[in-house]
């Protein structure tokens, strides 16, 4: 049935308005739901979060190919973007498979296929957050985070300090090194406290950045050559 031009324009603008309203609601919803909770970690090789949300098609192939079953697709109602993969370090850290099957499974490069050495993965950065309760800070020899670290003595080292409380013992302070820590979360899982004192956080939350013109003279001279 032919309709008048007037009716056609009215119909079209009605539909445009409806679609735009739906779009607005969706837009506002996605603005709120884009933040990744800091304790939800992306699988190894995950590209930066905004890109990840454009690339990941939520197919779950990484989840299927994880031999340790640590990856999970966020279900509706969780505060991780619906359908995207993540893991929780405290309950199931990344076991750092040498062949990185999750990255190989990804069809869209949301997990970057250029990651071939798992030690180059940067899923997050471990931070010893709670100095008050960490047993090593209290002067005991817990050392669990240090012992379980797959890159022991590289990603986590122990720094021997004077124990001022007893005045005669040493404290072995775990120090995380960002140029080796993959963010696998073994330390967070291993921590013997009821709530872990060491936690893997997203890098941008965990790491500071010096002003680019700052130079540490004991690392390099003022021309930039190593000291």
């Amino acid at each position: 049935m032919p309709i008048s031009r007037r009716q056609f324009l009215i119909n079209s603008s009605q539909q445009l308005a409806s679609a735009s309203m739906a779009g607005l609601v969706l837009f506002l919803y996605q603005q709120q739901s884009q933040a990744l909770p800091s304790q939800a970690l992306r699988p190894p090789g995950a590209v930066a979060e905004p890109d990840f949300l454009a690339r990941c098609v939520r197919c779950g192939l990484c989840v299927r190919d994880c031999p340790y079953d640590i990856l999970k697709l966020a279900t509706l109602g969780e505060n991780v973007t619906t359908g995207t993969p993540y893991f929780t370090a405290r309950t199931g850290p990344c076991e750092m498979c040498e062949d990185i099957p999750c990255v190989k499974a990804c069809p869209t490069n949301a997990l970057d296929s250029e990651l071939t050495d798992i030690e180059q993965a940067r899923m997050g950065l471990a931070v010893l957050i709670d100095h008050e309760h960490c047993l090593n800070y209290l002067g005991l020899r817990c050392d669990v985070c240090y012992r379980v670290c797959p890159l022991i003595d590289q990603a986590i080292t122990l720094d021997i300090q004077h124990n001022r409380r007893t005045q005669k013992h040493a404290r072995f302070i775990p120090i995380v090194h960002s140029d080796h820590c993959t963010g696998c979360g073994k330390c967070e899982q291993g921590c013997v406290l009821d709530v872990s004192a060491i936690k893997v956080l997203p890098k941008k939350l965990a790491q500071g950045k010096p002003n680019p013109h700052y130079q540490a003279p004991w690392k390099q001279d003022f021309k930039g050559n190593p000291a």
Binding site: F27, S33, L53, A54, C56, V57, R58, T75, G77
Partner: peptide, 27 residues
């Protein structure tokens, strides 16, 4: 305009199929 798969946040078709396979949640 957002650079994200916004529709996939609410798309009932993909959400339902995915949750039947990977876990139901609030689907």
């Amino acid at each position: 305009f957002t650079g994200r798969l916004v529709w996939e946040l609410v798309n009932p078709v993909s959400i339902l199929q995915r949750s039947l396979i990977f876990g139901l949640g609030l689907t």
